[in-house]
Structure formats: structure tokens, C-alpha cells
Design a protein around this nucleic acid. Sequence first.
DNA 1: ACAAGAAGTGAATCGTTATTCACTTCTTGT
DNA 2: ACAAGAAGTGAATAACGATTCACTTCTTGT
Lengths: 214, 214
Amino acid sequence: MVYRQTELTKQKKAGTRQRILEQARALVMEGGFAAASVVAVAQRSDIATGTIYRHFPSKGELVAEVFRMASGKELQAVTAASQVKATPTERLRQAVNTFASRALKAPRLAYALIAEPVDPLVEAERLRFRFAYSEAFEDLIEDGVKSGEFAQQKASFCAGALVGMLAESLVGPLSPQLSSVQEQVSERETLTEADKSELLNEILAMALRAVEAS
Amino acid sequence: MVYRQTELTKQKKAGTRQRILEQARALVMEGGFAAASVVAVAQRSDIATGTIYRHFPSKGELVAEVFRMASGKELQAVTAASQVKATPTERLRQAVNTFASRALKAPRLAYALIAEPVDPLVEAERLRFRFAYSEAFEDLIEDGVKSGEFAQQKASFCAGALVGMLAESLVGPLSPQLSSVQEQVSERETLTEADKSELLNEILAMALRAVEAS
DNA sequence: ACAAGAAGTGAATCGTTATTCACTTCTTGT
DNA sequence: ACAAGAAGTGAATAACGATTCACTTCTTGT
């Protein structure tokens, strides 16, 4: 027994693992989870397919981790925005704006995270994250209801509906952007900056109306 | 050339085709599109797998037609509800109520139509139907904006967002019901009648707030 | 230098479904 | 009854991606 794992090898291994995750993430950004086959991830990471399995027990676990990384970043941004020191209305505005504008900046990734058909392990993560988003909004809505700024409503439900509304408002505009894999929707228009800005305004206005006292 | 297709055989063939569609639909109602494999559909229709291909060029076309049938029925109900002779507010109330209560009555089917990962051919149909729903709401919102009952808003966008909100508000409550195939979510509660009724009220209230003038 | 354990390799295998096709059975008009 | 065309059959095949595994290469301590 001459060979025990040392600091160097441990780091090297962690590095490989990291590279796999990064390349998988890059593939998802370009072509969604569908593009992240084991073979493709391996090729892009300059390793053999088998190596993937030295780092992840299954493909599902790999993509679930990719999902967790990417969604975690988004969630953090939204949560931070929702906790600014301001009125509930302003906090909602910030949170919605953060969510939507980030999605519009990386449409392929956003679609993958929000709506793309995925492996059950990933779907489970998605549910979890959706719930986490919901909680971020829930706090803010509760404060708004207490202060009378918002209408009387069941915060837990409305937060969920709000997340759904946000997500779905974006899926429509987002899906045409996918181009590559899906042939059917090829000749749709691309979103101009002006379109995006108008979209943002409408989403913001509607979200506010949806919770505000009338 | 002694055998030309006659009325009787034509009807028989149409009958078989119909039975295939019905059994496929039944399978979808029970276990979603995932449960509607060609073999399963054939078995349940008491025919050989090959026979499916005498009636449909591919599995995709078959399930797309099942989707079209089922969604068409839902769409028709919502459209009808949205066209009752009443104020825009009341029409919205009717349409939303129709959509949501029907979904809650057949949760497995609703989930399959709204959110289940499906074959691209079916996904294309889904987009089309989503747009059709959106149009039903669009007319009603436009009327409401004109009459001043609703806030100033871009009807085409808000209708889409509304459809998204409805769909997504339901996916959460609906997905736990799936039971059979998905193991992860097994120990979630089932919706009681009281839950459903509360859910309906909240959805209705939020949808109205989302479009109404403040 | 060497032995042993760890990481990496990639072609072969497995699992799952849709799809095909050579064959059988049914229907019809003469 | 019979021939021809249509419908039906279901085992075999195709296609696809995940997973395995016997093997090679690398790393380490003595």
C-alpha cells in the first residue's frame, strides 16, 4: 500500500470534476439539457466517457448538479433583490426585474432551467427551486399584506402563482430563441432590445397588479 | 382487381382508428404520455403493434392527435365560457373557473396536457393551443380595457401571461397527484374538496387583480 | 526501479422503444 | 370457389444513449 491519495491528486481530481461540470453547463447554455449527452460532455472535457462515471454515479446526478449550480446562482440573485431595504412594492419590482432580465440575457439557459423536458432527478430539483423562489416572494408578499400595500391574499399560494406567471411569461418569448435543435419554430423573429424592454415593463406591471390592493 | 374499399370496411377501419385514439387517451389519463407506448396502446386496443402503423404514420402523429382531441375539448369549454354575454370581469371569472375546475377534475390529464415532457410533435401542438387559449383571453381583456374595467395593458402579452399563470398555478397542486410513475413525491397530501375550492378562489382573485384597474 | 492503488480509457453491452416486414387472415366481386 | 387487394400480426430489427469493464496510464512511497 504505497499510494495514498495526496493533496495534489485530490486537487487534480476535483479539477477534472469541475471541468466536467463547467463543460456540461456550457453545453446546456448552448443547446439545453438535450445537448448534454454523456458522450458530448466527455468529448468537450477532453476525457473518455467512462471517466465521467469516476466522478458522478450517473448522468442524472451530473445534470442535477449542473442544474443546481445554475439555478442556485439565479435564486441567489432574486433572493438578494427581494431583500433590499425598501417597501414591499419596490422589493417586488426588484425581484421580478432581476429574474426576468437575467433570463432574457441568457435565454437558452433560462429555457432549460424553467421549462425544458428533463430527467426526473432534475425535475425534482426544479420543483425544489421553484419552491425556493416561491419562498422569496412569500416573505415580501406577507409584508405587503400586513402593511396594507397589497391585497388580502394567501401569500403562500400567490407567491407560487407569481413564480408561475413569471416563468411562463418568459417561456413564450424565450422558446423561439432556441433555434438549433427545434426545427418547427425556425422562422420566428428574434427579440430586439426594445422588445425586451417592453416585455419587462409589461411583466412588472402585471406582477404588481396581481398582488396589489385595488 | 376484385376488391374495392366499400362503406362497411371503411367504417370498420375508422372504428379501429377511433378505438386506438380512445385507448391512447385513456392511457394518458391514467399515466400520462409516458404510459402511452405503442405496445401499451396496441395491447389495450386488442390489436398488434404493427396495426397502429396502418392508421398512423408514426407514434408522434398518434399522440399529437390524442393531444389535439383532449386539448381541443378543454379549449372549447374555456372559449365558450369566455364568450358569455356579460361584463369582461364576469367573462374572465367564467373562463378561469372553467379552466381550473376542469383541470382539478382530471388532474392526470391536465398535467399531461399542460406540463408533461413530450415528443416534439406534441410540444408543437401544445404551443399552438397555448396561443389559442391566449387568444380567448385576449378578446376579453381588450373589451375590458376599452370599457375601463381593466387597467391599460397590452392585451396580447397579458393574455399570454395569464395563461401561464393559470397553467403554473395548477402544476404545483397537480403534480403530487401523479403518484404511479414518479416515486419521489409519493408522500405528499392529496387535495381535498376544500383545498380545491380554496385554490379556485385564490386563482380567481389573483387573475382578476392581475388585469383589473386599480 | 518498482509495486500497488487510483484515475483514465473507449469499445462493447445493455435497455428501452419505435418501427419494419414477411406472413396470415379477412373482405369482396365475379 | 377463387383471386386480388386490404387489414392485421408480432417477432425481428433499428436506433439511441447510458452504463460497464478489462485494460492502460499515472502517481506515490519505499
